[in-house]
Amino acid sequence: MKALAKNREVLLGFIVAAIVLAVGIRAPVFLTGESLVNVITDTCFLFMLTLAQMAIILTRGIDLSLAANLALTGMAVALVSRAMPEVPLGLIILLAIVIGAALGSINGALVAYVGIPPIVVTLGTLAIFRGLIFLLAGGQWLTSKDMSEAFLSFPHANLLGVPSLIWIAGLVIAAFWILYRQTQFGRGLYAIGGNPVAARYCGINIPRQQFIVYTIAGAVSGLCGYLWVARYGIAFVDNAQGYELTIIAACVIGGVSIAGGIGTVSGALLGALFLGVIVNALPVINVSPFWQMLISGFVILAAVIVNARSERPIGKLILASARKLERKA
């Protein structure tokens, strides 16, 4: 089973590579270093947010408000930057993380301590966050002329020839890898999703863990909120509209089980990369956005069908003869 999961990731990797090569043959300009770095840079948001969403999905939850959180936080820091251009960049980034985490913790509290289903909570906060953007900015659009030079230039800055956005995404990915792989908290997320009753009997504080994952996801959204506004030079109500579904799609394609308890960092990253390549590569060879949607849709369904575990026994093993067979198998 482990082999199959690995194989699926390898398969997904091959598909991504095949798309890149196929597009490259039709349009060699796509295979230049600059163009590929651009694809990766564009996908950085999806990498970070997919890993954040994965933490929540592992616990059998879902967060529909991540993109709205991103847009609201982005607007908030853009307004701060307009009002006080002298605020140092470090403080802006910190502020974005804190605002995002605070918004996420609202979801966390409602899910973990009030006991409302995650899909309902985050559907509500999605609408509230979007509404707040309008109120906060009075319906205005903030464009690059409203933001300070330092604010705008950071995502485009290079360190050792690599854009800062990639550095940040790299740090976030590393942090998530450590969380999922090397901490008891992270393994506990798998336990909660895999078998909540057993997890409780193991002494895992399920509400606390839930609260924390929604807060972490919010913090990542907040960070992405600043980066998004700075990279694209615009903050408005419909920023990243619908992106929450792209994030969930990347999780599903990457083999994160919506039923909870299953998912790997490498799988989730490949899922995000797949969507990033579809969105960036296909326009190069003039494939219309509608075809992109169609392809993504088919891949999501294919991924779910592959994930559907068909190995469950048909009935309970009550007869002694059936149990013997099971052991031999």
């Binding site: 336990a191 057993a198 997890a199 299953i262």
Partner: peptide, 16 residues
Amino acid sequence: VMFDELSVAENIFMGH
């Protein structure tokens, strides 16, 4: 009542 998707070692020591 345990965690099917995790390793034996994690099942033994989950929580501690």
